[in-house]
Amino acid sequence: MADAANPVTRTNVSRPTTGALKWVMRAPGLFCLGLFLILWMAPILLVLITSVKSNADFLAGPFSLPSALTFAPYKTVWEALGFSTLMINSVIYATLGSALAVILALVPAYALARKNIPGQKIIFALLLTGLMIPQQTVLIPLYDTLRQLSLLDTKLGLIIVHAAYGMPSQVLILRGFMTGIPKELDKAAYLEGASDFQIFSKVILPLALPGIIVGYTLNFIAIWKEFIFGLVFLNSESNFPLTVGMLKLNSDRYMSVFNMPAAGLVISQIPIVIVFILTYRKLSSGQFAGAVKG
């Protein structure tokens, strides 16, 4: 995010305050910062600390520091919930589901960005519907469709459903990025005799790559978070994603001492933290916000 795009900062020019006074004037801002940080960081930090406490340390209270680090809760909860299966399943759903969603979205996004398709407004309305539809309202027919296709309680079935529901947002995001590519590039390629497909694959796709990465990542996170489709369309524990498998943590067996559910929470978040660290600059700069605004 370029500093040039920061209108408010420049107004400091008209405010020649310095030194201590400056910090006094900033006090409300600093207070807000502290409050926000506590509100949003404390729950996560507390869970992290709880997850490495022994049972005895846990009884000393939520704010006590552990007398020694223990990773026993991680080991126990990993084996008891079968985290290796849950983890692999979630990775499968998130990687393949979002890959399929992006692949399906590429050509429609290109067509919407570059061609005059009749009924564009209707298509946008349909895409927004697909984007916004509450999952509960489609559960019953989807359940029925998956049953008829023998895809109920299969990984493939859930991947296809995730792809179908990821696709609309991918079309909108990719269209946003593709619209930003100068049309002169297409024209130049066209004048040199490139076919539509060549323009698409040689000119547009490489330039849309940042958009593809942003879209793919957002979809990956969305599928990682998704719960209700997995809950309803799957029966076998061997197919459960993390969100469904983790429900078990909310039972007396695990909730009597908090270090185990805390450890489970941390485990479930590790892959997303990795994805987040790799891409958060792109995501949190709000580039996709502009794309979604259309």
Partner: peptide, 9 residues
């Protein structure tokens, strides 16, 4: 895919 999994349901 859109019609089968989003529109029709």
């Amino acid at each position: 895919i859109f019609l089968l999994f989003v529109g029709y349901p």
